[in-house]
Computed example of a mutant assay.
Amino acid sequence: MSVTSTKRKEGGFGETVRVIVHALIIALVIRTFLFQPFNIPSGSMKETLLVGDYLFVSKYSYGYSQYSFPLSPPLFNGRIFGSPPDRGDVVVFRLPKDDSTDYIKRVIGLPGDRIQMINGLLHINGEPVKRERIDDFIETEESDRAIRVKRWRETLPNGVSYTTLDLQDNGFYDNTQEYVVPADHYFMMGDNRDNSTDSRVLSQVGYVPFSHLIGRAQIIFFSVREGDRAWQVWLWPWSVRWDRIFKIVR
């Protein structure tokens, strides 16, 4: 083999390595500072988010904390370029009780707010939140038969509107104490109210510090039926929820 041929092969290998390294750096920058993919493992945010949804979370929406970076290195305290979330945002955050675990819920209470559930109706600062009954949610993926679940349209004081599910009357957290949100903290709740471990459970979630917010859920980029896997491409014609792809999260 000639010297020229050897150098050409070595140069080609080196170029391939450089391309891979550059691609990894670009992916790391995008994941750290712009968008991070998440998948939904539980039904606590039904029907807004379903098990099997894959979505992008904008990392820049609320600024950056140590939890914005891979492995969460304690580089600094608090947030830089911080911008507080709006009431009603769907947010991914690091669980205060276990900062290795990510949760996704909706921001219901802002710092200083008083939050309470009374007979299944959300109250903010002593005022009931507007809620209207709409047609039932039809659950078809968790069992062999269709299950009807009560569905409500809830509208927060700032006008943000979304749907919530009510699996049972007089559920465990349909009547709660009054929670007072501390400064620099937020009160999170799942839209599937009877099937969500959220800020109502002080011993497991509680109030979420601003520093623990990772980003805002923006768009669903892929979705497969509950129980199926995204890598099972041979099932895609039947398992992919085509109507949910590129759906904006609200």
Rank of each mutant, 00 (worst) to 15 (best):
L34Q: 12
A146H: 10
P85C: 08
S199T: 08
F187D: 01
R151S: 06
M45K: 03
Y64N: 10
T4E: 13
L55S: 02
E141P: 00
R31W: 13
V90P: 11
S239D: 01
E226S: 15
V17C: 14
P41I: 05
F38H: 04
Y162W: 07
W238S: 05
M189F: 03
H185K: 05
D144N: 15
Y62E: 01
E127W: 00
K130V: 12
S83E: 14
V91N: 10
D184R: 15
K9V: 15
S72N: 15
R79K: 12
V224K: 01
I104V: 15
L75D: 01
R145Q: 13
R250A: 13
S83Y: 08
V180G: 04
H185Q: 13
I108L: 11
P74A: 05
R18M: 05
M45D: 06
I219M: 14
A230Y: 09
R79F: 03
T6C: 02
T101V: 14
M189E: 02
G52R: 01
S196Y: 04
G63V: 08
I20D: 14
L95A: 14
D174V: 04
N39S: 10
W152I: 01
N195R: 12
Y67I: 10
K130G: 02
P70C: 08
K150G: 10
A230F: 12
S61V: 00
V129H: 09
V29D: 04
